[in-house]
Nucleic acid binder design. Structure first.
Lengths: 333, 333
DNA sequence: CTGAAAGCGCTTACAG
DNA sequence: CTGAAAGCGCTTACAG
């Protein structure tokens, strides 16, 4: 089924059919109806490839899966929302895998050189992510989920992010309001921008509240797993002045912390308060529930796609996270 | 950067450059080297869209995200592996969303009509999934992760599946070997083919072992959540002759079962054995660990893509699941 | 308002 | 082994 067949069926030229599709206001109502009837009758749909070649638009937004096949709980809803948002603009998602760092840049470069995509959505950003500067310097449109430059305005391109610092500050102040003064932080070892953002908020609030520096210890989990979280918690709880509250950078690490707490005969939420981040399935699944921070997934996705519409103006959008209180840390907000 | 520029740079015709790319054996070694040098120097990569139009191949495999944005733990690794497998064949993944059932069929139809994809990979299959017959009847290549027809050979198209029936039978026999004779099943309410497959294996093994029918009760969780699992477990444990072992159709439901068990002062793995399915993050994260069944994700993905290579011959590949024993059910295998 | 022409950047038989 | 020609199925100015 091609334009040509529709044209001959309707008794008009191919260009007129094209006009019916792309500029219906320019065609005579009678002709319009006639052609639309033919389109309907034949079940015609324009060939995307041919259209792409003519318009020089792939109609595809590239999204690169991060390095290793993890078990991200955030991925399913995010991908879903992002894909839906992109589809609303008449385009689709081209999924690819790319190793993190400079090596993975080649994949982005290839996709652009081949004109396989029109733009990228970036996530799993790392500190000073090389992708941002590379893409920006070549004028490739993109939107980033996550900031990768600590200083506002330095980051190339548009971005959306959840205010992890603020959310963590809220957790700290909520814990403090319940009487906690020794509030530790369990972070990631890797230099993700989200990790440092969250840690920054935790530290800032501890300082603002005038908590003693030695009471606000940050440790890094040696692996991004429950085991890593458990080991980090063990180190913390073994210290001379153990914390009474532990703010973990992710739900997964928090679950590890919870396990270690339980193993020591302590009760989370009573003896030690524990919080996570992401409000993933884990947070609800864990016994007693894990206090966590929900990311506004649908809004993140919609905003990212919106930013893609205006590639020339660089903007940053900071979205609030929502503290979800559960048994592991009965906060006062 | 186009073929034309490479040609003029190398001092040959465009067709020769195309031959260098697509049939290097047909071109004179000297010319070959010269053209390749030009390609290298200019960093030329063929425009995918133009190539697609000429070859009538989109170079894209469609993958439809299931209905609702869930929090599937399996999705991240599966999508990763699948994307990698497809990339190894020089193609990419086109991601889209489709509502389940007949309504979603239109999305598949559109993609085909527009020639946006060459083939599909199907997952989240339901009983007598309408997609299979629809695609098969129009000669659209596809491979299905999951069987949707109970009887071998009836299913249109090629498929890969994990032998959930066998894995569940193994769980049952392992439990029986530990002395369990009252082994219940907690399933999904929805008619997923994976769900009925697993339940079938559980029931068959119970019968084979000669367990009393009233000791082998199956219930459906009213929602696919930990709460649903908990309610199902409550019903089971409240019955006159409560089970001593509960085989849940998924890790999520199993975690709900574990919660209910704990809430009643019972200890999982000692008073009641509990098993899940998927060996997701949850299984490892839960305190004491959840005995579960691991799906061979990488192999599934690779096989699916392999099946796509031979669209004319319909084949089915059954892969074994691997029982992973943890604290919630210390089986003897 | 409509249609003839050129072009998007490739590939694919087919002469030479 | 190499190149001239036609074509993939659209769109986009541009005449008429």
């Amino acid at each position: 089924m091609t334009l040509r067949q529709v044209a001959s069926h309707a008794g008009v030229s191919r260009q007129t059919v094209s006009n019916v599709l792309n500029a219906p206001e320019r065609v005579d109502p009678t002709t319009l109806a006639k052609v639309q009837a033919a389109i309907e009758a034949l079940g015609y749909q324009p060939n995307r490839t041919a259209r792409s070649l003519a318009t020089r638009q792939a109609g595809l937004i590239g999204y690169g899966l991060a390095g290793s096949p993890g078990h991200s709980l955030f991925m399913d809803p995010f991908l879903h929302m992002m894909t839906e948002s992109i589809e609303r603009t008449g385009r689709h998602v081209l999924l690819f895998t790319a190793t993190p760092g400079l090596a993975g840049l080649q994949t982005y470069a290839d996709l652009i050189a081949q004109r396989a995509v029109d733009a990228f959505i970036l996530s799993d950003t790392v500190d000073h992510d090389p992708r941002h500067s590379w893409l920006a310097s070549r004028g490739v449109p993109f939107a980033s989920f996550g900031r990768a430059w600590p200083d506002e305005g330095e980051q190339p391109g548009s971005w959306v992010d959840v205010d992890g610092a603020k959310a963590c500050a809220e957790l700290v102040s909520g814990l403090h309001a319940c009487g906690h003064t020794r509030i530790a932080f369990v972070g990631w070892q890797s230099l993700t921008s989200a990790g440092s953002d969250r840690q920054r908020g935790w530290r800032a609030e501890c300082e603002r509240l005038g908590l003693a520096e030695r009471d606000c210890v940050a440790v890094s989990a040696d692996t991004d797993s429950t085991e890593g979280g458990a080991r980090a918690a063990a180190a913390l709880l073994d210290s001379a002045v153990p914390p009474t509250a532990i703010v973990a950078v992710s739900d997964l690490l928090a679950v590890g912390v919870l396990g270690e707490v339980r193993r020591r005969g302590l009760v989370a939420g009573r003896d030690v308060a524990v919080t996570g981040f992401d409000d993933s399935l884990l947070a609800a699944a864990v016994d007693g529930g894990l206090t966590s921070v929900r990311q506004p997934t649908a809004e993140i996705a919609a905003t990212l796609v919106g930013l893609l519409e205006t590639p020339d103006e660089e903007r940053g959008v900071l979205l609030p996270g929502e503290v979800v209180v559960r048994g592991s840390a009965p906060l006062m907000l």
